[in-house]
Amino acid sequence: MQNNKNKMKFLVPLISVFLGLLIGGIIMLISGYPPIEAYAALFEGIFGESYYRGETIRQMSPLILSGLAVAFAFRTGLFNIGVEGQLLVGWLAAVYVGIFVDAPAIIHIPLAVLAAGVAGALWGSVPGILKARFKVHEVITTIMMNYIALYSTNEIIRNFMLAPGERTENVKESASLASPFLQELTDNSTLHFGIIIAIVAAVIMWFLLWRTTLGYELRAVGFNQHASQYAGINVSKNIVLSMAISGAFAGIAGSMEGLGTYQYMTINAGFTGVGFDGIAVALLGANSAIGVILGAALFGGLKIGALNMQAMAGVPTELVGIVIALIIFFVACSYLVHWLMNRVNRGGKI
């Protein structure tokens, strides 16, 4: 039975990805694009040149972190849709420290990343407190907090940090994650050191959840709040803590954009989408650290490959968005797969 369960853990995502790509192909066929050529261009655009590989890895870093944020909250039974907002405040905090603080790189970079984490944690803990104290569902509050973050960060940039071009100044060299070495290695892609931070964060999440008392309590609350309460675990504290840690991951994802990819922050007309993609990444990765990394690799790859697909086969990049949505659907509907498998295993008896 245990063996079977583990098998399902791998099977469901794999089948979902396969079905998502298959239906994506059918959509292309119906709308008159060549699916095989398009997918070939897509994979060429991920693995074909070192430039593409560099871009994919760069795209992965914020996705890993936002995926970790969603996954971490999931483990405590919380659905953090607010990654997008926490990411924005983290981005702003990182850029703020990057611009206004003077320090050698060895201090400046960790300080800026830390600032992003703290900002994200604070933003994330608000829905946590509301949930723990007033029993307000975190899905709604995190969505609302996203918009508050979007408008507030824009206003702060407009009033205090504005540079020509609807954006802030560049962060100082000492706070930048950009790496000429990595860029050269990957044919002038925008790859930066952020990926190291992202992978370290994944290890931290794994360690925290599976090797500490805190992680044990967080997971216990996720499994059964009432039982945890009865066993003497402070449920309220764990809910707030879980949202704060989740928010910290999201905030650091923002610093990837602020210190790595862009080196500045723009006045955003809308959301970056990275936070929402994090939901897809966490779902596909079954909320485990290693799964999140693999999920981020897949979605990061699809997003980067989509550019080549558009260039070579003329298929709009949005097709990848459709495929991602379909994958989420199939993972969410895993009940269907489970139910069928159970039925078969029990010899047709319910």
């Binding site: 849709i81 897809a280 949005e318 097709l319 968005g321 969410a332």
Partner: peptide
């Protein structure tokens, strides 16, 4: 999960409409 399915609807709508 109804929330997850709703999130997927949002993704799908954006992708499909602009596509």
């Amino acid at each position: 999960d109804q929330v997850v399915s709703g999130v997927a609807i949002n993704f799908l709508a954006v992708g499909l409409a602009i596509f």
